[in-house]
């Protein structure tokens, strides 16, 4: 026997059982997933991202650093600082892969004075990039770091 649902749709006893079954599936985790999840995750994390080259130099000549390596190193640099959380690092290079701009996007901890924090992050990241790219004389104007505060977080 069919009955009307709230929206006028005719409901049958089969629909009630179907709803129950669907609710069961909604909360179910397949055993197949439980057994393969670690392997699948490890495999995904082994994939290497294509990454733009950024030119560095040392006394013996020049070398190239992958942008992903710079991202990871800046993340490691800022992670211990409870005032900020790095969200994105975009790198722009010019001819010969020379770094022209680094845009650092961070969230700031709640109630942090933003202007001094931005200056601090800018100086810290610029110094780090000068170090990694091997040119202690690289001026701030060439290694420009913009700080975008897009969010706040609680430490």
């Amino acid at each position: 026997m069919a009955v009307n649902d709230g929206d006028g749709t005719r409901r049958t006893p089969g629909d009630d059982l179907l709803d129950l079954a669907t609710a069961q599936l909604r909360t179910h985790t397949d055993d197949g997933w439980v057994s393969v999840a670690p392997r699948v995750l490890a495999s995904a994390l082994r994939a290497v991202r294509p990454s733009q080259p950024v030119r560095g130099r040392h006394a013996e000549g020049e070398y190239v650093v992958a942008a992903d390596v710079l991202r990871t190193s800046v993340r490691a640099l800022l992670d211990p600082d409870p005032r900020v959380r790095l969200r994105r690092l975009a790198l722009r290079t010019g001819p010969d892969d020379v770094l022209e701009e680094a845009v650092v996007e961070v969230s700031a901890a709640y109630l942090q004075p933003l202007e001094p924090l931005a200056d601090d992050v800018r100086r810290t990241v610029a110094a780090h990039l000068r170090d990694v790219l091997g040119d202690a004389d690289l001026p701030d104007e060439v290694v420009r770091v913009d700080l975008l505060v897009t969010d706040v977080h609680r430490t």
Binding site: A37, V40, L41, A44, T72, V74, L86, R87, R88
Partner: peptide
């Protein structure tokens, strides 16, 4: 965003 910066733990949490 953190996974985009190479953070394995963040991606593992997403998974």
């Amino acid at each position: 965003a953190r996974a985009g910066l190479g953070d394995h733990a963040a991606f593992a949490e997403l998974v």
